[in-house]
Structure formats: structure tokens, C-alpha cells
Design a protein around this nucleic acid. Structure first.
Lengths: 199, 199
DNA sequence: GTCTATACGCCGATAGAC
DNA sequence: GTCTATCGGCGTATAGAC
């Protein structure tokens, strides 16, 4: 890990290209059905060996993918919490972000929502134990303390609120909800917020 | 398929044992990390070959598992719709059934909720296209027609209602919600129903 | 350093011996 | 019918050519 910081800058563009290609294939065909050859081909590499320049193994590649997505979400949540004081506003911004990702990073969302931890992320924290979710729970706690949100177990608040949001997003991503996503966003937000709002 | 009906009764007990063992391993270690040897060992068979007596392949085994679970759910929903007239009562019974399965068939629920279709169920209908879900949507349609449920796109009703129910059940199954499941059932039901109830 | 060739182990699936 | 032997494919890792 120290190594990464002092080593000369590798071709990060190529590394990103590998990550992008792998992500696309993983959500399309699953981790199991994606070989390193598939990834090499999609990233326009001549051989699979080049992947080992950046990653120890296929599993390691998938872990990096997962970490990157979760970390970037976590950073965005930091930003949201900094810019909004009220719990309601923070949640509204978060829902806004997630629905933006439906357009801008659908594969990342698909990966996050359908990943099977037991399969290749055994050493990674499950999503619910990551800083990202931890911060979401803090938003709920803030709302409970301020009297904006009903006083229930934060994890139950989470399952009600994000149960609606995630499921709606999944249905949009797989084409089951096929109208404009803004339409579903506003309805999902209202439903999710009403579920946890005080009074 | 005709074949199955006229062929002499095979050792269905053994077949069930294989299915049970496979289900347990699939949800524990994932489909990828479960070998036929693992399944044979868990089912107390002497060799992997015996599995081929009942299933064409590992993938076929997983498909049968999936179909059985979805079909049995579908039959239960038929029963629920027959025994209850009002949409509210049907949904309440359905939630009751799902929470009973948390205790009685946790692995089946885990499998259903975390299965990655692209991985080994490519030829199977996605859950949302199965008769089981189709009947759930009919329950919503009935409620809308009767004025019990808000007049929204049934699929959006579905994502709000079952988004809460499924997510809560998932959190119970993985131990994140660790109190008595009846407690969560009543709260999830109230939240889910309020989300879709008219007025 | 970059790429080709190849050996190894694991697993799913098949074939054939008894 | 039961079980052992084995094949082929794939992911991993290594060795070596340029």
C-alpha cells in the first residue's frame, strides 16, 4: 500500500479502461461467466497478461471495482452532509444523486445492487458495514434527534426508506419501469420520505 | 417433460436431499464456489455421478431449485387470493407468509432475493416476469379498482410495497435486524401499506 | 519491460468397466 | 445401475524469447 504511493505513475488510463471493461462485463454476464480473456478483449489488450500489471487476480480486480464504487459514494455523501443542514435536505440530495447515477453510471449501480458478496468479495466489508451506509444511518440519526424523522431503530428506517429507493432504481435499470426516470424519482422520494417522516 | 410423468418413481427423497444440500451451499458459498463434489458430500453421496441421475448439469440443478421456489410461492399466492376478498387482506396474508418463510425456509428466501440471473438462470424468467409476481400485481390492480389502493402504475406500487418488505426481510436474514422478526413484520407491514393505501 | 508459450490444478461432464 | 477413469476447458502462474 505504501508502494502504490511512491511508485512512478503507471498508465492509469489503461487501468481505468480495464476496470470499465470488467464492470460492464460483470453486470452483463456475471463475474462467473467473464474470463480474463473477455476483459482483455473488451479493453483492447493484446493479451491477458497485461491485466496482471495492475491487478493480482480476477478477484482482486473485482474487489478494487467494488471499493472504488463504495468509496466514491462515500465521498459524495460527505459532500452532501457538508452542504445541507437538515436531514430532509440531505436525504433529498442523496436520492437525487442516486437517480443521477442511473443515467451517468448505471453499471456501477447495477454492480452495487446485485453483487453477491459470498462469490468474490469475501474479504470486503458487506455494503451495509461500509462508511457509506454508516453515514446514511447518521443522517437518519440526525433527523430523529431533530424531530424530523420518526423515532425508530435507524436500521429499520433505512430498510423502509432505501428499500423503496433501491427497488425503484433496480426496476428502472432493468427496464421494468420504462418511463422517464424523473417521474419515478419524485414519486419514490415522496413515498420513501412519508414512510419515515414524523407526523 | 412427458417423460417425467410416465417414468417410474425415482428416489425422490434422494433428489430432494441433493436439492436441499445444493440450496444451502449456494446461499452460503455462492453458485460459483460450490462444486458438485461439495453438493455430493453434503448430500452424503459416494460420488458426484449420482447427481447426474436426477439433473443434467449443475446449472440445471440450480434452475430446478429456482423454479421450485417460485412455483411454490405462486401456489401459495393462489391460495391467499382464494381465501381473501379484499386486497388489504390478501397483501397482509402474503406478508405473513413471507415472514413465516424467514423462519421456515430462510435459504429459499435468501436464494430468491440474492440470485443473479445472468450467472446461471439465463433461460429462466426473471422473478418479475413469473406468475408469482404477476399475481401480486393483480392484487394491486384489484385494490386500485376497489379504491383501497392509490391509483398509480402497479409496478411502482410494487416497488414501494415490496421494496420495504424484501429489504426488511433481507436485513433480518443477514442478521442486521437482530430482534424478534414479528416486531419488524408489524412495522414493515404498516410502513408498506401506508405507502400505497388510498388516503 | 513486454509478450508468447506452456505447465498445473480444479471442476464439470463423459465414457466405459464391472 | 454403480462407480472409476479420464477428457476438455478455464483461470492461474511461470518461464523464457525478444
Amino acid at each position: 500500500m505504501e508502494q502504490e504511493k511512491i511508485s512512478p505513475p503507471q498508465n492509469t488510463h489503461l487501468q481505468d479502461e480495464i476496470l470499465r471493461s470488467a464492470l460492464s462485463l460483470f453486470v452483463q454476464k456475471s463475474y462467473l461467466n467473464t474470463s480474463l480473456s473477455d476483459i482483455a478483449m473488451a479493453a483492447k489488450l493484446d493479451n491477458t497478461q497485461e491485466i496482471y500489471t495492475y491487478f493480482d487476480s480476477k478477484q482482486h480486480l473485482a474487489c478494487v471495482l467494488y471499493s472504488n464504487i463504495v468509496d466514491s459514494l462515500s465521498v459524495s455523501i460527505d459532500d452532501i452532509r457538508r452542504r445541507n443542514k437538515k436531514s430532509t435536505d440531505q436525504l433529498h440530495s442523496l436520492v437525487d444523486l442516486l437517480f443521477k447515477l442511473v443515467e451517468q453510471a448505471p453499471d456501477a449501480l447495477r454492480f452495487l445492487l446485485t453483487v453477491n458478496h459470498a462469490e468474490f468479495l469475501r474479504d470486503e466489508k458487506p455494503f451495509l458495514k461500509t462508511p457509506a451506509v454508516n453515514k446514511m444511518l447518521k443522517i437518519f440519526q440526525l433527523g430523529i434527534n431533530n424531530g424530523e424523522i420518526r423515532s425508530l431503530e435507524p436500521m429499520l428506517i433505512y430498510s423502509c426508506f432505501f428499500g423503496i429507493i433501491y427497488t425503484t432504481i433496480e426496476l428502472i435499470l432493468n427496464g421494468t419501469l420504462d418511463k422517464k426516470s424523473e417521474l419515478y424519482q419524485s414519486q419514490a422520494w415522496i413515498a420513501a420520505w412519508n414512510t419515515i417522516a414524523k407526523k
